[in-house]
């Protein structure tokens, strides 16, 4: 295996074969340093895994066992009751149809929010990076400042605005607020990605009488795969995990899964059912995890593509 050879033709057309320079890899030895690294990494993993372990085993226990108080013990009887209850019959207020109601509500919030937030920021970023927009610098600066405004301090004005637009209390209200709040950061991300596209491509496209939209759909969009994956994952995670925007702008009918979850686990004067709570928390956390598993590799590629360019 170590006999790596390189074949090449010399000036006369003869094939010469030479050994490639070969640097043997150092054999891995266990040193003090590698042990320290391993121990550190193991501790880091434990730091996250121990609470996760407790959450998982608790979700499979019965309440009688939980009342005994030994939280690290394995369930005497493994039961899916809590999972079934959390998904199918947990109460959010007077409606006891489980988290599945909130799940579909979250999905129906997620899709328009994704399309709206990514669509708006992508086009804004494209315009700012590749077209001569008057006051582009000032505009970018304002967006940059907006990225630092906490949502809580503009919440009530936003409520009044969405109420005036007649979208308060609907999925569209939630989607609009997600789009507006995500716009500063996402626009900056897209703008920085697009500004590395060579000017020549743009010039050629303009010469070929491409319009703003045609260049976008036929040239820019196909080049945006990497960054789209990054932004998609960021947005799916933040929209799915969002509680405050959903609870504030969703109104009576369209509250996301996180609100159901909060209803389930926040007790005022009732009984705490830890197994149901843990199962519900896991059910709520699963969708973004699944997304990570499927596109996580692309995510890393996308991030590094953005980082190395320019």
């Amino acid at each position: 295996m170590s006999e790596i050879t390189i074949a090449a033709r010399n000036a006369k057309g003869e094939v010469t074969v030479s050994r490639a320079p070969y640097f043997p890899r150092k054999k891995k030895t266990i040193t003090g340093r590698s042990i320290a690294v391993l121990v550190f990494l193991a501790l880091c993993a434990l730091f996250f895994c121990i609470p996760l372990y407790v959450v998982v085993v608790t979700s499979f226990k019965t309440m009688d066992q939980i009342r005994e108080g030994a939280m690290f013990s394995l369930p005497y009887v493994w039961t899916l009751e809590a999972w079934d209850h959390a998904w199918n019959s947990a109460c959010s207020g007077i409606n006891c149809n489980g988290l599945k109601v909130g799940f579909w509500s979250s999905v129906s919030i997620l899709i328009p929010s994704l399309i709206l937030s990514i669509g708006i920021s992508m086009i804004t970023g494209y315009a700012l990076a590749l077209w001569n927009v008057r006051w582009a610098g000032a505009f970018l600066f304002i967006l940059f400042i907006c990225a630092f405004v906490p949502f809580q301090i503009i919440m009530f004005p936003l409520i009044s605005m969405t109420a005036a637009l007649k979208v308060y209390g609907s999925i569209w209200g939630v989607a609009l607020v997600h789009a507006v709040l995500a716009m500063p950061v996402l626009t900056l991300i897209f703008r920085n990605y697009y500004k590395d596209i060579p000017q020549e491509i743009m010039s050629a496209a303009v010469m070929d009488s491409g319009s703003f939209w045609r260049i976008f759909t036929e040239i820019i969009l196909p080049m945006s795969g990497n960054i789209l994956i990054v932004v998609l994952i960021m947005q799916i995670t933040s929209i799915w995990n969002d509680y405050l925007i959903g609870v504030t702008f969703g109104g009576p009918g369209s509250q996301p899964m996180t609100v159901n979850l909060a209803n389930l686990i926040t007790i005022s004067t009732g009984v705490t059912r830890y197994n149901d709570n843990m199962a519900a928390a896991l059910l709520t956390a699963i969708p973004p995890l699944v997304i990570y598993f499927f596109v996580g590799k692309l995510f890393v590629q996308g991030i590094t593509a953005g980082a190395i360019k320019g």
């Binding site: 947990a90 109460c91 959010s92 207020g93 007077i94 006891c96 009576p252 209803n263 389930l264 926040t266 007790i267 005022s268 004067t269 009732g270 009984v271």
Partner: peptide, 17 residues
């Protein structure tokens, strides 16, 4: 009637019903 409350535990829901 739109009824706003913060109760979701089983005994609370039984009472609301």
């Amino acid at each position: 009637l739109v009824v706003y409350h913060s109760w979701s535990a089983a005994p609370e829901v039984a009472a609301l019903n």
